Computed example of a mutant assay.
Amino acid sequence: MELKVSTRSHAGYAVVAITGEIDLYTAPRLQQEFTRLLQDRPGRVVIDMSLVEFCDSTGMNVLLSALKRIKEQGGELDVAAPRPAVRKILQVTGLDSVFTVHEEVPQEFLITEGS
C-alpha cells in the first residue's frame, strides 16, 4: 500500500497527515518529510494518524527519531487520532507514555482553507 504524507504549516506549528501503511518500505518517505519539516523548526508538530492502517517498528522508529529531533530544537510532537491497531502498538511498546496522544487532532491545529 502506498504512503501519502501531507504537511500543513501555520503560525509556528504543523500538522502532518499520514495515509496508508508505515512499514520498512514506506518509512523512508515519512523520514524525508520529517527531515524537510524540521528544517523549518516548527514549535509544535501534530501527526494526524487517523488514516494510518498499519505501523510497524520501522515506522515507530521514524516517529521516535522525529520526536527526539524536535525536542532538541525545543519543540513538541504529538500523535493524534491513531486507529485501534496503531493505538495497540503504542500501548504494547509503551510509546503511549512517550508521545502525547490525542483522540483527535486538537481544534487549535485544524487548519481551514484560507487561514
Rank of each mutant, 00 (worst) to 15 (best):
Q32P: 01
F54H: 07
P106A: 06
L90D: 03
L90Q: 08
K71E: 15
G75H: 09
A17H: 10
G75N: 12
Y13A: 10
V101W: 05
F54M: 04
D40R: 13
I111S: 03
T112M: 08
T100M: 01
F99T: 03
Y25D: 09
S50E: 08
P28C: 06
C55Q: 02
T7I: 15
S6N: 14
E72R: 13
E113N: 12
I89V: 15
V105W: 03
P84E: 15
M49D: 00
P82A: 07
L24G: 04
I89R: 01
L38N: 11
G20W: 06
V62P: 04
V79E: 00
V101F: 06
Q32R: 14
H102T: 02
R41N: 13
I70N: 06
R69W: 03
L51D: 14
M60C: 08
V101I: 13
M60L: 15
V5C: 05
D48T: 06
A27S: 14
T93Q: 11
P106I: 07
V79I: 15
S57I: 08
D96Y: 09
T35C: 04
Y13C: 08
D23G: 03
V16S: 04
E103R: 10
C55Y: 03
T7W: 03
A80G: 07
V45C: 04
T112Q: 11
A85W: 01
D23P: 02
L3I: 09
A11T: 12
L37Y: 12
G74V: 10
T7L: 05
V5A: 05
P84N: 10
A85H: 11
A81S: 13
C55H: 04
D23K: 02
V86A: 03
E104V: 10
L37C: 11
A27F: 00
I111T: 10
Q73Y: 08
H10L: 14
E2A: 14
N61H: 11
T112D: 08
L51W: 02
I70F: 06
Q31L: 08
S97D: 12
F99C: 04
Q107I: 08
